[in-house]
Design a protein around this nucleic acid. Sequence first.
DNA 1: TCTGATCGCGCG
DNA 2: AAAGCGCGCGATCAGA
Length: 575
Amino acid sequence: MLLASAPEQRQASGEQFVQLLPLDASGAPAAPARIEAKLELAAVVAQWEKEASPRWVWHRTQDWYPQLLAAGVSVDRCHDLLLCRNILVSSQATSASAYARGNEPIPVETAEASLPERADQGSLFDQPLRQSQPTAEELVADLQGQLEAVSGSLHPGRLALLLAAESAGALSAAEMQHTGLPWREDLHQAILSDALGPRPSGFQRPDKLEALAAELRNQLNAPSLNPDSPQELMRALHRAGIEVRTTRSWELQQLQHPAIAPLLAYKKLSRLHTANGWTWLDQWVHGGRFRPEYVVGGVVSGRWASRGGGALQIPKNIRGAAHAEKGWKLVVADASQLEPRVLVALARDTGMAAAARDKDLYAGIAAQGFGGDRAKAKVALLGAIYGATTGESGRLMPQLAKTYPRAVAFVEEAARAGERGDIVSTRLGRSCPPPSRRWLAGQRTTTAEEQRRADAEARSRGRFTRNFVVQGSAADWAACWLAELRRRLRFLGAAVEAGAGSGERGGPETDGKSVPELVFFLHDEVMVHTPESQVALVRQLIEESARAATALLFGEIPVEFPVSITVVDSYADAK
DNA sequence: TCTGATCGCGCG
DNA sequence: AAAGCGCGCGATCAGA
């Protein structure tokens, strides 16, 4: 392991220096500190990487890795102290440790600016240094505390895996932000002008949107209506005799009135214009790539969040703009029905595992317990995972429980724990937040009215913890999948580059740059942008990685986690 | 006039 | 189709 400490400013020269401190496996400094000047850092890191392939230990990957990537240097492994701290201080598996008792979680900082093109890529620390960077001594102490907490925990292996996967995720996130998702600006423009008309100047509505607004005003006899205002819209609808409780599309869809069609069309187009229109394109797409910021550790369940550009919600209607470059393909893979399969594995429900042998889990369940009605089976199972109480899903729960008592009991137990105020954890040991002080206070009430509210809040927390164990364990699986795939792709990339370097000709595109790149990750889906010649290999690596993730989480288990893979030019054609 | 909450809708 | 979970974001709205 190698610790990279905060940069320090030398009084005399004003130059900034970084300490790289070799550590042994227990986190103890193994040799005298090496001090390196700033301009050499990327080169020094590259050298270590080549010779020793250490696990880099640093406070936040975000503080180091983007600049290294900009300098053309990537690393194999790291230990992100901040992300790991947040897991360990709240994990039930380490709750008795000195580390957990002596530290608080630190919310991942989102203040970091998403990088525009860095003007000066040569030097590392041109930006003003962030304050309150820990010293090398503090970092070493932190690391040692973390390692002790893991080794003394109930499940050292699982936790160590979780920390490794989380840290690898941080590397992946920085790399994907650096690489970007291939995005054809011209195709996006075409989608916009097809749907909205030519780009308007200033803050005007696009032609087609304005035309729909005019028709709507006409139909509702409301000449000054602003359809963007829910209140105005509601009043206008009521005046026109359309009784509606909200202005949501799905509720409007039920109605028969000449105003409804233009209103729904307006809402749809308005969404495209405001969320993913020309402004979005100007702001987020540069040089043929969409570069969103991923926030690892941004969701308590372990899923990633994102900031800027709505990276985790690229709507279907603009996916056509995500497009492979010439001679390349997009390999889009998603883990089919990941959450229900994770539930099967967690609960060790053998009956449901038999159904999960089917590529289509819902069809398997439908055959066993729902008279072949796939839709019913799906609604029932998702309802169990989300905690549905009403509607069709709620009504199907008893039937599901009869067929799969273990799976249902598993989520029910998680729900009961949450209602009691207890903590629940994922497969690899990430735990949910404790109830808030306000929640706890609310549970100790006397009056009937307060009690009703407290019960509702308890049930709400129960739905959260019920879902947490499944969503979070699915995130564990996906993190391992991504990390395994990243490792294999690095290996492949190194092999291709070595081949190119030693004079072997693997084809005209083997110019050292033509290696598959991970470009997108979304909960249970990964995308690799690859030269066509490597497509078959990439497919294989994705499948291997999924099997590896399953084995890492669950060992030998008779549950399949199939991935469905499509190879496309356009993201719109995936699935 | 600024700020935080709410609505509505996109994704898994 | 939502419903039941987890998010981000833009426009509007309510309150200082």
